[in-house]
Structures are given as structure tokens and as C-alpha cells.
């Protein structure tokens, strides 16, 4: 449905997007994760036809965006990260305006608008002025607006940013509904766990480059060989660090002020032995746990790695 091939966007010498490639199949939900300034918005703007790439190719449903931007724009619903609304316009008129922009004939407009406002739970705000809506409502209205021409592909740039927890849940419910409607969705966020339960695939972007990309399970599998042990110690940590370093199964150690993280490869048997020996050596262990590998820690792991490599 969406194929991005070796996309580059340079601002002078700086490359905001640096050789990014993507392939999202029809009906998939692709989560696009990255720290601030990673290049998510830039990529999405290029896909939405709002920015000209320095090089590279974007194909939507088999059509090259540089060759036929109008046809591609017809297939994309885009929701920017920041947007404004016109003052002096009512919700229904707002929807009517964008229907007109997409050339939807007048008689059909009202029905479409009603359906979409129903979908985003704004039916009771039909006659309000758009600039009087709360932020969450505006965001939902903008989502409804991006659906007005029934696009196959949705490009949503942080649709849940700036929303309170309740509104986030609501937004997620709406997105699930869209998923059930069979839309292909590219959605960006800073927060991986939020995407994990929604998305079929995930890509992590760092400094304009794709660090890792694949289905949620695949990524978990690729990361989770190599587990992490977290040990909390009372008193001097030095002997504990020295002891852990001597263990052959432990590959890497990082000591923080309160705990020690150690990457290891082995089973519970080995772990039990390590704990036994720690206590034998008079080290006062408070807790000793194997860290749950969730997407959040994968994300931190990967992106911090990226910064270290670059620095």
C-alpha cells in the first residue's frame, strides 16, 4: 500500500531523513517511533505531499507521488502534529468546507459528515464553533476531516499528543475502529507501549535512519536474545560489580546509583547460582530480578545505542 524507498531529505548539510525505507501492506497499522527530531514528521509530510524529498521514492497504492501528486493525495488522509482551525466556522461548516475541497458533491456531504462525526464522538458538537472546541475535540475533528474523502491510507502524526489519559484511550478506541474498517495506517508516537497494542508493525527511527523495523513479535524476538538482570545492593556496590564482572555468562554491566544492570545469556539455574554466590560473598542483596523486556526498554536500548554510536 505504502512503499517508501531510500528517502532522503536534506536541509543544507543536515539530513533530517537519511535513506529511509518502509513497506506497509494493505490493512496494516504501522507504528513509527522515534525521539524528538528523529525525522518522523518530515517523513510523514513528504508522504502527504507537503514537502519535496531531496531524493528517494514514495509510492502509494502503486502510484508514484512525484508523478501524480493529485491522485496520491486523494488516497491519503493526513493529520499533522500541529494544526489550527479557522475561527468563525461551525463544525458542520468545517466538514462541509473540506468536503468541497475534495470535490464531494453537495448532497452527499451532510451524510458523510454525520457519519464521521459519529465515529469520532462529536455528534453533539455539530453546531459549535470549531475554535471553541477543546484540544481533544479539535484533534478528533481533524481526524474526522482526514477521513472525509474515504482515503485508503491514513498518515497520523502523533494523534494522541497533548491529550489527557482519558482522551488518549478514546483516541485509541477510534483508531481501533479505523483498523477494523480496513484502513492502512501510518501512525507516529514517542511512546512505544501506546502503539504496541494497536500496531501490526513497528519501525524505530533515529536521526533520520530506520534503526529497526518489523512486526511487533519479530522485533521482540530479535531483541530478546540476551536478557538483563537487575540487582539492588545495600551499601558499597564495588564488590558486587567486581563479582558480577567475573561471571562468564555476563556480557555487559552498567551500574547506576541504586542498582546494577547486567546483560546475560543463560537460564534460571545459572541465575540462582549467581545469587547464591553473591550472598556467600557477603554482598547484601535487596532485590534480584530478571527485567521484563517490553517495547519501552527495547526503544530506550536502541535509541541510546544510536546516540552513543554517533557520539
Amino acid at each position: 500500500m505504502l512503499v517508501v524507498d531510500n528517502l532522503v531529505k536534506s536541509y543544507g548539510k543536515f539530513k533530517a531523513v537519511d535513506g529511509l525505507s518502509l513497506d506497509i501492506g494493505e490493512g496494516h497499522i504501522y507504528g513509527f517511533v522515534g525521539a524528538n527530531g528523529a525525522g518522523k514528521t518530515t517523513t510523514m509530510k513528504i508522504i502527504a505531499g507537503l514537502l519535496k524529498p531531496t531524493s528517494g521514492k514514495v509510492m502509494v497504492d502503486g502510484t508514484d507521488i512525484s508523478e501524480n501528486p493529485k491522485a496520491v493525495k486523494r488516497k491519503i488522509g493526513y493529520m499533522p502534529d500541529f494544526f489550527g482551525v479557522y475561527d468563525d466556522l461551525k463544525v458542520t461548516e468545517y466538514m462541509d468546507f473540506y468536503s468541497g475541497v475534495y470535490g464531494i458533491p453537495k448532497p452527499e456531504r451532510k451524510k458523510i459528515a454525520d457519519q464521521l462525526l459519529e465515529l469520532v464522538n462529536l455528534s453533539d458538537k455539530k453546531d459549535s464553533y470549531v475554535d471553541s472546541l477543546s484540544r481533544g475535540m479539535k484533534q478528533r475533528l481533524c481526524l474526522a476531516r482526514s477521513l472525509i474523502h474515504n482515503p485508503k491510507l491514513l498518515v497520523l502524526d502523533e494523534p494522541a499528543s497533548g491529550l489527557d489519559p482519558r482522551a488518549r484511550v478514546e483516541m485509541k478506541e477510534i483508531l481501533k475502529e479505523l483498523r477494523n474498517m480496513g484502513k492502512t495506517i501510518l501512525i507516529s508516537s514517542h511512546i512505544l507501549p501506546e502503539l504496541a497494542e494497536l500496531c501490526t508493525s513497528i519501525g524505530i527511527i533515529e536521526r533520520g535512519k530506520m534503526v529497526i523495523s518489523g512486526t511487533v513479535d519479530e522485533i521482540m524476538r530479535r531483541i530478546s536474545h540476551g536478557k538483563t538482570l537487575r540487582v539492588k545492593i545495600l551499601g558499597d556496590m564495588e564488590p558486587a560489580v567486581r563479582f558480577l564482572k567475573e561471571q562468564p555468562i555476563i556480557s555487559r554491566i552498567s551500574a547506576a546509583s541504586e542498582f546494577i544492570d547486567a546483560d546475560f545469556d543463560g537460564d534460571s539455574d545459572v541465575l540462582a547460582d549467581i545469587l547464591k554466590n553473591l550472598i556467600k560473598n557477603d554482598i547484601r542483596v535487596v532485590s534480584f530480578t530478571e527485567l521484563e523486556k517490553n517495547l519501552e526498554s527495547v526503544f530506550m536500548h536502541l535509541t541510546i545505542g544510536g546516540v552513543q554510536n554517533a557520539g
Binding site: 507537503l50 493529485k70 493525495k73 499533522p80 494544526f83 489550527g84 475541497v101 470535490g103 474523502h149
Partner: peptide
Amino acid sequence: ERQTLDLVLCTNLS
């Protein structure tokens, strides 16, 4: 300035 331009430019209105 009001950030409404992109919303129109991303449509197929010329």
C-alpha cells in the same frame, strides 16, 4: 501562522 495551510495543501485542491 494559524497552521491551517497544510490542511488545505494536503488535499487535492490545486
